[in-house]
């Protein structure tokens, strides 16, 4: 029987090595893992380390669904994301998640920032073509920074660039409708699912906050998304303080969401 495809980002525990984390993640029931934004935690940019990562994934019976790359607008983004794409291709990871800007910025900077993002993406398109890896631009603070993602994706080719939906970011100031998925659902390549409790208190396990998961999963179900139910949750504000219990509960919730996203008869991807 195929298992429900579920994933969790390593960002919940940068203090523990991947040698420790992958078996824990696998034991909790996850089928996939995604690498968080702190590259030194996994050192995937080091060519020699990539073989170790492949072995670790194999040993833990895990697959990797995404890598969180550096921001598109930072100096050196092109070379860093090119190396990230090479690592992703080696590790059989289909998507690299990126932020297009700082979490928020002044609206007067919009046009200049859009040009920077489009220029970097234009240079990344051949990299995506060569490696077969796609880049998913993530929504950040609602407002200009998320509008930048929407505007950039409107101009970028869908074969190489898509959308990463972060539920905690989208629901800042919520609960509110999931209109962002109405707009960008057809470009959805990656999920950063987590729940939100109140201002500044989020990225908790689904069910711990105010997000209406039935409605959200319905939106995802009507989108182009075909990857695992992927969580980006942290322990900072979660009620689950023990790491093993946190992982167990997170996986349980991800498995509950799975049929809501892919249908009751979904038998794994």
């Amino acid at each position: 029987m195929n298992r429900k495809q579920t994933s969790i980002s390593t960002c919940f525990s940068y203090e523990r090595s991947l040698e420790d984390l992958f078996p824990l993640i696998s034991s909790a029931g996850f089928t996939h893992v995604s690498l968080g934004a702190k590259e030194p935690h996994s050192s995937y940019l080091s060519v020699s380390r990539r073989g170790d990562l492949l072995q670790l994934l194999h040993d833990a019976n895990l697959r990797m669904d995404s890598i969180h790359g550096i921001r598109l607008d930072l100096p050196g983004a092109l070379s860093s994301l090119t190396a990230t794409a090479e690592a992703a291709a080696f590790l059989d990871v289909p998507v690299i998640v990126v932020h297009a800007s700082s979490f928020d910025f002044d609206p007067s900077e919009f046009d200049e920032r859009l040009e920077v993002v489009l220029n970097t993406c234009e240079a990344l398109a051949p990299v995506a073509e060569d490696t077969g890896v796609r880049f998913a631009l993530e929504n950040v603070l609602p407002g200009p920074a998320t509008e930048l993602v929407r505007s950039a994706l409107e101009r970028l080719p869908s074969e190489h660039f898509g959308f990463c939906y972060d539920s905690s970011h989208d629901q800042i100031g919520g609960p509110k409708p999931f209109t962002l998925l109405d707009v960008l659902g057809t470009r959805l390549l990656a999920l950063h699912l987590s729940d939100r409790i109140r201002d500044h208190v989020d990225h908790v396990v689904p069910g711990e906050g105010f997000i209406d998961w039935e409605k959200l999963c319905e939106e995802i179900r009507h989108s182009a998304y075909a990857g695992p139910v992927s969580l980006e949750v942290l322990m900072n504000f979660s009620g689950f303080k023990d790491q093993v219990e946190f992982l167990r509960q997170a996986c349980r919730q991800a498995e509950r969401l799975y049929p809501l996203v892919f249908g009751e008869n979904a038998a794994g991807l």
């Binding site: 968080g36 932020h99 950040v140 500044h200 990225h203 942290l234 900072n236």
Partner: peptide, 8 residues
Amino acid sequence: MPAKEVSS
């Protein structure tokens, strides 16, 4: 002190 939103 006001906390910041998590920008992961």
